[in-house]
Design a protein around this nucleic acid. Sequence first.
DNA 1: CGATAATATGCCTTGACAAGCATATGCTGT
DNA 2: ACAGCATATGCTTGTCAAGGCATATTATCG
Lengths: 114, 114
Amino acid sequence: MIETFAALAEPNRYRIVELLRSGGRSVNDIGARLDLNQPQVSKHLRVLKDVGLVRVEPRAQQRVYELQAKPLRALNDWLDRYRRVWDVRFNALDELLVELENNKETSNVRKKRK
Amino acid sequence: MIETFAALAEPNRYRIVELLRSGGRSVNDIGARLDLNQPQVSKHLRVLKDVGLVRVEPRAQQRVYELQAKPLRALNDWLDRYRRVWDVRFNALDELLVELENNKETSNVRKKRK
DNA sequence: CGATAATATGCCTTGACAAGCATATGCTGT
DNA sequence: ACAGCATATGCTTGTCAAGGCATATTATCG
């Protein structure tokens, strides 16, 4: 999770991700559109690949990078755990639903009461 | 958006946010629970406050920090724009349904009614 | 097999930022 | 106003990561 945040916290990497939202692109294509030098694009893509945000598909002599679902899904799941904070619908009488959802995931919910 | 990612990319800040999910806490309380020195806690809270992730409420001589909805909501909205990438239900032939949902406005999409 | 295009990697420099520690500021009760 | 606790800020140091540039790697085609 933190890795994903770190990857997206870098401005140029964020721009790359935004660009790839419209579909896979080659390294040079990305560099041209975002006005970045090729080596830096490759490096950023490496970071994005390491955290699973993109995957590579060789196409002829170039490599097409495209977004991957998994980290985005993970981000969504993470955010779900904060729903009671940001979603208005959870602030009122939906406490019951919250309880149910908490039961569904028994991961790190075991907190010590004092 | 990038600011939010950057704030959450720092391990200790992430831990603070996770801790605050269960409710507002004072600076020393946070420091004690996460085993952090008080100055670093204050600094991290400053960053979190600057990006709007927390707000302060003075309580006696201590300050209680608690999570704020806005950046989390923004994060959710941002993620929504990638839904077609990560949400399986968007990958197939549900394009029509997407149109319908957008029109219905029942989902958590587009609730900004400024 | 050379030539060339597309991409990756290595090295260096520089800037940002987190931790540690000392100290300042602020609030509360007496 | 003073003492004492809670929190904030300033300064220094060390680490890490991004950009720039040169160069290595890989693939395609003649």
